[in-house]
Design a protein around this nucleic acid. Structure first.
Length: 271
DNA sequence: TCTTTATGGTGAG
DNA sequence: TCACCCTAAAGAT
């Protein structure tokens, strides 16, 4: 289940078996892409790139396979021949002498050249990705200014604002910054906006490093060492309705914003 | 076996 | 905001 950090980690694993190697075999499950497999076979995979929740697997730097996992897509990476034991349906596969990258269940798969990439409606609208080094806190403050009238709860799901942030990161970022989802950038003080921008980078980058854990890193190490299950420390508020806030002890609430569930601490994130 | 939910996204109104 | 699409797994019956 993928937001930007999970996709980037999957891309790292895919890159380990594909990047810099010849695609000995390419497979697409969809008839409309069958002829493309022949076109890509024998090419070298030059790069595995992510843009928010989208992944681009580049062949000879001029053709890219665009994949979006939506809610269900899942990458399996194998160092040797063989397929994973799963009831899922294989949709896209690339084999090299280093192994195989296999994408299951995803339905959004396209082969694009550079012009097609520029014209792609989803990619074209993406805002900066907090996983990019270039996306500094200042860049995020500029985005907050650009979307100053939008409520934060809805804004943080909009990929035109920031690419790669999804539903669990939204709750975690707003909690980390101590802001209520009904507020708007224009309502925040300069300090609050700066804090929100920093929290955004912190939470997204931490989720990438930890594989989806958003709580404070030092605490995570302690809990892991103590043999705690991951769910016991994974998030501050997401999925924790009715439980105690890790910062103040108040009861975490579940609400809805932009049609999706959102969790918050009513004390740490005052309206 | 049916229904609901899900870390996602689109298009109509 | 809503209906809808995509697919898999969990929950209800």
């Amino acid at each position: 289940m993928p937001e930007g950090p999970e996709i980037r980690r999957a891309a790292d694993r895919v890159a380990a078996v594909l990047e810099g190697r010849v695609a000995e075999d390419v497979f697409f499950a969809f008839d409309r892409l069958a002829h493309r497999a022949d076109e890509l076979r024998g090419r070298t995979v030059t790069r595995v790139e992510t843009r928010g929740k989208a992944m681009l697997t580049w062949f000879d730097d001029d053709l890219a396979v665009y994949t979006h996992n939506q809610l269900y897509g899942r990458w399996f990476v194998r160092k040797r021949a063989g397929f994973p034991k799963t009831g899922r349906s294989l949709r896209f596969a690339v084999h090299t002498d280093a192994g195989a990258a296999l994408l299951y269940s995803a339905s959004e798969i396209e082969v694009l050249d550079r012009a097609g990439l520029r014209a792609h409606p989803f990619l074209a609208k993406l805002g900066p990705d907090p996983l990019d080094r270039a996306t500094t806190a200042r860049v995020i403050r500029v985005q907050l200014e650009r979307f100053r009238r939008r409520r934060l709860g809805a804004l943080y799901l909009d990929q035109a604002f920031l690419a790669g942030v999804g539903n669990y990161l939204r709750s975690e970022i707003l909690f980390e910054a101590g802001v209520h989802p009904d507020r708007r950038p224009m309502d925040l003080s300069p300090d609050e906006r700066a804090s929100l921008a920093r929290a955004t980078n912190l939470i997204v980058r931490r989720a990438y490093q930890t594989g989806g854990v958003t709580t404070e890193a030092a605490r995570v190490r302690d809990l892991e060492a103590a043999g705690q299950p991951r769910r016991a420390y994974r998030h501050y508020v997401f999925g924790r309705a009715g439980r105690a806030c890790r910062r103040c002890g108040e009861t975490i609430e579940k609400t809805e914003a932009a049609g999706r569930r959102l969790y918050l601490c009513p004390s740490c994130q005052a309206a």
